[in-house]
């Protein structure tokens, strides 16, 4: 089967891929800007005591723990979950990159390495999505904390990844349409959903790092304080 010829794409696919997709992005930016504005309307807890640790170092550490599973005791004992988490989020990043680069560089995206690379992560994202969904359904502890939004987001992301597997070879307009349909839907829905956690991440990690750094708790394994004169 031959690659899709870009100028032959139907008007609906073009609408979703271009106008709607970018409109969605604009909406998301506006919505998140407003959300962030709302967060900053709340008073921040103030810390007026002299610091015991290094704020900057602690804030860096706070962000970096995401890439240091050994720093989280529970992750240390469930490394496979961490690998799953990392691959799933990389797959999402690949999916987003694919969706935004394709309209601008469709001929470049027909490179077999890029297609293979994207497909690999779409497959991984899909399989991990299924596994995470199964855990949410079968584990009583996970079921207890799952809202309808949690299930909906995970199901939709998994379907998006599936559509990505089919769309990545760039040979079927129908699959491409499906892929962009999901991607565009997400741009409108994500600011309302739990998927917004990636935006909050940057703010909460800053405050957590600052708070624990102030007290000398972060980075976790601190060194001995300097000896004072008695």
């Amino acid at each position: 089967m031959d690659y899709i010829v870009w100028k032959d794409l139907g008007p609906l696919t073009r609408l979703v891929m271009n106008q709607l997709h970018y409109l969605g992005l604009l909406f998301m930016i506006v919505a998140y800007s407003y959300k962030i504005y709302q967060i900053f309307q709340y008073p921040s807890a103030k810390e007026g005591t002299p610091p015991r640790g290094d704020h900057q170092k602690a804030i860096r550490y706070s962000y970096m723990t995401l890439a240091m599973p050994w720093e989280l005791d529970t992750q240390k004992h469930h490394m496979y979950r961490y690998v799953e988490f990392a691959l799933f989020h990389i797959a999402m990043a690949v999916g987003i990159g694919f969706a935004f680069i394709l309209p601008m560089a469709h001929e470049f995206m027909k490179n077999s390495f890029i297609i293979g690379f994207s497909k690999l992560f779409f497959v991984l994202g899909f399989l991990i999505g299924i596994s995470r969904l199964a855990r949410r359904v079968y584990s009583p502890a996970m079921r207890r904390i799952s809202t309808l939004d949690d299930y909906f987001c995970l199901m939709l992301l998994t379907l998006w990844m599936f559509s990505g597997i089919l769309a990545a070879p760039l040979k079927s307009e129908l699959f491409l349409f499906a892929y962009y349909f999901f991607a565009t839907f997400f741009l409108f829905y994500v600011p309302f959903s739990k998927i917004s956690h990636y935006v909050y991440f940057f703010f909460i990690k800053y405050y957590v790092g600052k708070h624990f750094g102030h007290r000398g708790t972060f980075p976790k394994k601190g060194s001995m304080p300097t000896v004072k004169n008695v």
Partner: peptide, 15 residues
Amino acid sequence: NRQHVLSFAACAHCG
């Protein structure tokens, strides 16, 4: 406060 809001909103129910 702001720190509470972030702790409320950031939880992704990852378990």
